[in-house]
Design a protein around this nucleic acid. Structure first.
Length: 837
RNA sequence: GCGAGAGUGGCGGAAUUGGCAUACGCGCUAGACUUAGGAUCUAGUCCUCACAAGGGAUGGGGGUUCAACUCCCCCCUCUCGCACCA
């Protein structure tokens, strides 16, 4: 009898040993190849459920795998610790955000520990502590110095629930990304980071990530940046000096413009209405439109409405006089806030023109076809041949587009222009729990950045932070009132705090010298370890965090502080774990907590199931009763290994003449090599842990058929030993505790961390004999067993001689015999139909 | 509307990219061992046909091929992203 698989003792034992011996702590002196493995650091919410666990278990498996593959692995962990939930929880629970956050961190650390997830805790970073946010503020100052941080008055996204302004990226379908309540517009003076200056580089460098980032993420970033190339056209106002500038990507349709519309927010609007008798009506329309929610304003379903301004503009190319309108579907945020209307070739303009009976003028038609404006039911938006387009008529429109653009630019009717959807990043937050923006306002000197030597600007404790829409720090006189760094006169501090996404835009650099008091990071060390070799996280950050971090990295590159332009060489986005078909979340009440499962089956089982559930990049449903499968497998592995432990322990030397082993052991030996091969392939490829585990399960099933008591031959035992050791190492990334213990049971006194991933031998993995399916007309009718290197002729002969096959080919004409090496033989005969009909 | 991904047993999922569909696991059925079983072991388990032989199955329909889950065309459903961006 072998002792039971006592996972509780085993897991506690190894967790202790690992942390005491600092396993998985990067060796800075090593000359092994580096591997920076990084998981998106968590917000310290307090308790993690099994859905969160997936991220960390994947990361831990990768880190362990890379370690036994001989890499010098850096696997740090930290806390994205500023943010609203701490305030909200504090309001509810009474603890101040800092204590609350630090408590949560302590309990989450314990969870990681119990999961067997190892981190280089000496490098822990915590964004809400002054030794970290000092450098977040420093980043702001560097950007300010380069005019990349600026303050601007303008309309901002405002969340009434969170009582703060939001960046564009944090508004999803017109609602707050965090709390899902509708976002309204508010006029405020706020700080921005000029990410738009990097728009082109952020877009172009996506090419560098083409093979290593999920396509989906690249597409989302590309869409978000939304670059469009086109022309800005100048439409002169009739009887006036004023000019309306319209941006278009379809300058080939310029001859088809029959009206121009302005956004209700257009700055010229008021002036244009001065002498308009219908001014009041129009202003009423403008007001109403502005009041509409973001969703209503930007939905394609919203009916297009507008009013004539009683003014006309002139088409710069034709001199035609066309009406100038204001319309709800023109947006001030994009382009120039003025759009040229081409109803024949733009569906929106078409609907608008129909409603207000504006002219429709066709200037592009399908080849050899004419379009009758009166007969059109929708705009013709495809490519075609120019018509009614002056000298450009007859040209293919795409070609004409370039010609017309050249002509427009040459005659100064307009200019080439590129517009982006990407907006500058609004970072001011009217909340307490964040890094104060390091700026001072002096009546004499104006806006003065806090000198670097005065950093950090400490976030005061004991603040009444109930969200009221005005910054809580405004009510803290000892924070607010300060002196001007320039003139030393009385001055006031900026009281807004920074968006927490600023904190997380550079944390991966801080891990590399977390305790450096003199600078945010050490360029030499960073250049050695960066970029991150494998970044692992959820796809929900496809734009937000990943775009901001790329922006920061490019900025630091320009400052010559880092030598790389992209922070994350490889990105893996794992799928979410669902329960009852929906994503696990506290608010939905469908979370599964890991603790009871760890108590019942152990962390190794939990890890195993989490990875076995499906390919990690896909969403997967958590089925609690399936967890047992992993537990049974570990028990099996435990029993087999222990059964053989005494017999294989003293054995030395490798297997001699594997080909002379009894068949049973040859099979085990071969299967082991095949298993190593398959597992290695699954690990190196797309992280297909689920299939890697299934291969080892197959090996274990084979091994469990051996009777340990009856085996005495040393060479046979060597084959078993090789197999058991391989299985242990192959499973180590997934089930680290039990495999450590088994490694010891097999007679090793050093941790399994110090071993290397097993190597397979292609020859040894090869089958001597293979079973071939024999098909008749594509249907399997028989099987033959042949030596692996049998000649094709011989195989075909054997196939046709097979009894099962003979039955089917009797009396039929054999048309063809196809042999696919190592797979099958397909005999093509005249089919029944051919015979009977 | 546009783009991407997906659709395979009762369930989670495999299938080396055109070569034996359903590996591995869960569940289920029967048996064994047990005072007991939510433990363990053995056998079975895509459907249909009483068994066998046979036939049919990878969302549906067509096609290419000796051979299709895999390639091509049409359609349906689900998930995600984008969407009045000029």
């Amino acid at each position: 009898m072998v002792r039971d698989y006592d996972f509780k003792t085993i897991e506690a034992k190894w967790q202790k040993i690992w942390s005491e011996n600092k396993m998985l702590v990067a060796d800075t002196a090593s000359n092994k190849e580096k591997f920076y493995c990084l998981m998106m650091f968590p917000y310290p919410s307090g308790t993690l459920h099994v859905g969160h666990g997936k991220n960390y278990i994947i990361g831990d498996a990768v880190a362990r795998y890379k370690t036994v593959r001989g890499f010098n692995v850096l696997n740090p962990m930290g806390w994205d610790a500023f943010g609203l939930p701490a305030e909200n929880a504090a309001i509810k629970g009474g603890l101040d955000p800092k204590t609350h956050t630090l408590n949560n961190i302590a309990s989450m650390k314990l969870q990681f520990f119990r999961w067997g997830c190892l981190y280089d805790w000496g490098r822990e970073v915590n964004t809400c502590l002054p030794d970290y946010y000092k450098w977040t503020q420093w980043m702001f100052l560097q950007m300010h110095k380069r005019k990349l941080a600026y303050k601007k008055l303008g309309p901002v996204n405002w969340c009434n629930t969170c009582q703060t302004s939001l960046a564009n990226e944090q508004v999803v379908d017109g609602a707050c990304e965090r709390c899902n309540s509708p976002v309204v517009q508010k006029e405020l003076s706020q700080w921005y980071l000029k990410i738009t200056e990097f728009a082109d580089r952020l877009l172009e460098d996506l090419d560098l990530l083409e093979d290593t980032w999920p396509e989906k993420v690249l597409t989302m970033q590309e869409n978000w940046i939304g670059r469009s190339e086109g022309v800005e056209l100048f439409f002169d106002l009739e009887d006036s000096e004023d000019v309306i500038t319209c941006f278009t990507t379809r300058v080939d349709t310029i001859y088809g413009v029959t009206f121009v519309v302005l956004a209700p927010e257009h700055p010229l609007l008021e002036k244009l209405l001065q002498d308009n008798p219908e001014k009041e009506d129009i202003m009423e329309f403008v007001r109403k439109t502005k009041e509409k929610s973001f969703m209503e304003r930007t939905s394609p379903e919203t009916e297009k409405e507008g009013m004539w301004l009683n003014k006309n503009v002139l088409n710069p190319l034709t001199g035609e006089c066309i009406p100038l309108m204001v319309a709800n579907y023109a947006l001030m945020e994009y382009g120039t806030g003025a759009v040229m209307g081409v109803p024949a070739h733009d569906q929106r303009d078409f609907l608008f023109a129909q409603k207000y009976e504006l002219d429709i003028k066709v200037v592009i038609a399908p080849p050899n076809k004419e379009l009758d404006p009166a007969a059109m039911t929708r705009a013709f938006e495809e490519d075609g041949i120019q018509c009614n387009s002056g000298n450009f008529s007859g040209l293919p429109n795409r070609f004409a587009m370039k010609k017309i653009a050249d002509y427009v630019i040459q005659h100064k009717f307009g200019r080439a222009a590129v517009h982006y959807r990407l907006r500058d990043w609004l970072i001011s937050r009217q909340r307490y729990w964040g890094a104060p923006i390091p700026v001072i306002y002096c009546e004499k000197c104006g806006t003065v950045p806090v000198p670097e030597k005065d950093l950090p600007v400490l976030l005061p404790d004991n603040v009444k932070f109930k969200p009221t829409g005005r910054s809580p720090l405004l009510d803290v006189p000892e924070f607010l009132n300060t002196s001007c760094p320039k003139c030393h006169g009385p001055a006031k501090r900026e009281t807004d705090t920074m968006d927490t996404f600023v904190d997380s835009s550079w944390y991966f650099l801080r891990y590399l010298s977390p305790k450096d008091a003199s600078k945010p990071f050490d360029s030499a060390i960073v250049n050695k370890w960066m970029p991150v070799d494998q970044y692992i996280g959820g796809v929900e950050h496809a734009i937000l965090h990943l775009l901001y971090s790329r922006f920061f990295t490019k900025f630091l590159y320009d400052q010559a502080l880092v030598e790389f332009e992209e922070p994350f060489a490889k990105l893996f986005t794992q799928g979410v774990i669902t329960k009852d078909g929906i994503k696990m979340s506290k608010s939905k009440g469908n979370v599964v907590s890991p603790e009871p499962l760890i108590d019942q089956y152990g962390a190794d089982t939990l890890r195993l199931y989490t990875l076995f559930i499906g390919p990690p990049e896909k969403d997967a449903e958590w089925v609690e009763k399936s967890v047992i499968g992993g537990f049974r497998f570990l028990n099996k592995l435990w029993e087999i290994t222990n059964n053989f432990a005494d017999k294989v322990n003293g054995l030395s030397g490798g297997i001699k003449n594997a080909k002379e082993l009894p068949e049973e052991f040859q099979n085990i030996f071969r299967k082991t090599h095949q298993t190593i091969k398959k597992c290695t392939h699954d690990m190196e490829g797309a992280f297909h842990f689920n299939t890697a585990i299934s291969h080892v399960m197959e090996l274990a099933n084979d091994l469990s058929r051996l009777k340990a008591d009856e085996i005495t031959d040393e060479n046979c035992l060597r084959a078993v030993k090789f197999s058991l050791e391989s299985a242990a190492v192959l499973m180590f990334p997934f089930a680290p505790h039990i495999t450590e213990e088994l490694w010891q049971v097999l007679g090793h006194d050093k941790s399994i961390f110090h071993t290397t991933w097993p190597v397979y031998d292609e020859d040894a993995a090869k089958e001597d004999e293979i079973e071939l399916a024999v098909q008749i007309n594509g249907k399997v009718r028989g099987k033959i067993v042949i030596p692996a290197e049998a000649a094709e002729d011989k195989i075909k002969e054997l196939a046709l001689a097979n009894e099962d096959v003979k039955k089917h080919i009797e009396g039929k004409e054999i048309k063809n015999v196809i042999y696919v090496a190592g797979r099958l033989v397909n005999v093509v005969i005249t089919s029944n139909e051919d015979v009977t009909q």
